[in-house]
């Protein structure tokens, strides 16, 4: 079975030492979440960029290492948390597995099915925990939607529409826009909705995709049609082509009802302020939540490592979502519908 980690904190809970790889925006989100968790502590950050890595390490009061190898050689680590561009996930995960360490990895699991399968296989052989951070499963509005759908309240779901996107994300050396590093909008962004649909409505039958480009050669806006094996049809729209912001929305329509959500509409707090007529207008809009989804997700993964909870996201689920996104790319290339294989 999987080895339990045996550092015990003052509270009597198992405390795990986490090395974070990738001092970018997702790295910051994870580091912030660990600060709120009782049973884990961030002990190191790994980033090949000296300045960025050092600044991050200083900011979070942890040690910086230029490579995972260097980190593991000197630091006692239980969990490796991978927040790098997707293309680097497989090598880092395999390195952690071969050192007998648990891995939490940002989504997508990898950019190819072969790499993802190698990762899953390596984790199994090493007897360690492996979690892929499909965080949408921890967003309360999505969790609640799934609960409503599975309760039968909507009857049989016939049509679903999901939107996700906004302005193009800015990352390390523009990696999000590079198909070889991120898989761009269809693999990096829309994979959230592919995963949510499969989690909620079951396996996908066929997909058909269309992509739009504004200026360059990269697809920045995509429509993916999914025909689920249960007969439901879904449109997933993903975009990095809006001029600003980030929004998500969904609708599920069934024989007994319709369920809708739009992030634009859920701001439960809005503050508008201007001290004097010559000052700029300050607007603050917020949908506050006590424990943010990333924190809940990492807390859950740590609880799974302790054996206290059953994993909500299995690596095979992450592989499946990747397969859907790759089928969408294949559809885009071939101009035909593509069956999703397992």
């Amino acid at each position: 079975m999987e080895p339990e980690v045996n550092n015990v904190s003052k509270e009597g809970e198992v405390e795990v030492n986490v090395a974070l790889v990738g001092a970018g925006s997702m790295g910051r989100v994870h580091a912030d979440a660990y600060r709120h968790l009782q049973d884990a502590q961030l002990v190191a950050v790994v980033d090949s960029d000296v300045q960025r890595g050092q600044a991050f390490a200083d900011g979070w009061g942890v040690a910086w290492y230029p490579s995972l190898r260097a980190c593991l050689a000197t630091k006692a680590v239980d969990v490796v948390d991978i927040c790098t561009p997707t293309a680097f996930h497989p090598a880092l995960a395999l390195e952690a597995f071969s050192a007998g360490l648990h891995v939490i990895c940002e989504k997508p699991i990898a950019l190819t099915v072969e790499e993802a399968m190698r990762m899953i296989d390596a984790a199994r052989r090493a007897g360690v925990h492996f979690y892929v951070a499909h965080v949408v499963r921890f967003f309360p509005e999505y969790e609640e939607a799934r609960r409503q759908i599975q309760s039968g309240r909507l009857g049989q779901v016939g049509t679903a529409r999901l939107l996700r996107g906004g302005a193009a994300p800015q990352g390390w050396q523009g990696w999000y826009a590079d198909p070889a590093l991120s898989g761009t909008v269809i693999t990096d962004l829309m994979i959230h909705d592919f995963d949510f649909l499969a989690w909620t409505l079951g396996p996908v039958g066929r997909v058909f995709a269309k992509g739009a480009r504004r200026h360059g050669a990269a697809v920045e806006h995509a429509f993916v049609s999914l025909r689920m094996q249960n007969g439901a049809m879904a449109l997933v729209e993903g975009t990095w082509a809006y001029p600003e912001g980030f929004r998500t929305a969904f609708e599920f329509a069934g024989t007994l009802g319709v369920l809708q959500y739009a992030s634009d509409g859920d701001a439960s707090l809005k503050i508008v302020r201007r001290s004097s007529p010559s000052d700029p207008l300050v607007t603050h809009v917020e949908s506050p939540i006590d424990v943010n989804p990333y924190q809940r997700e990492l807390q859950h993964f740590l609880a799974c490592m302790r054996g206290a909870e059953a994993p909500r996201v299995k690596p095979e689920d992450a592989l499946y979502a990747l397969r859907v996104s790759l089928a969408a790319w294949e559809s885009l290339r071939r101009g035909e519908p593509v069956e999703v294989t397992t």
Partner: peptide, 28 residues
């Protein structure tokens, strides 16, 4: 009573369209 169209125009524009009769009669 449900459909999902994926379209391409001559000038390269891509589009999706939902024509479904999917609004509940009583509740909507």
């Amino acid at each position: 009573d449900m459909g999902l169209l994926m379209l391409e125009f001559e000038n390269g524009v891509v589009a999706a369209h939902d024509p479904s009769w999917s609004r509940p009669r009583q509740a909507f």
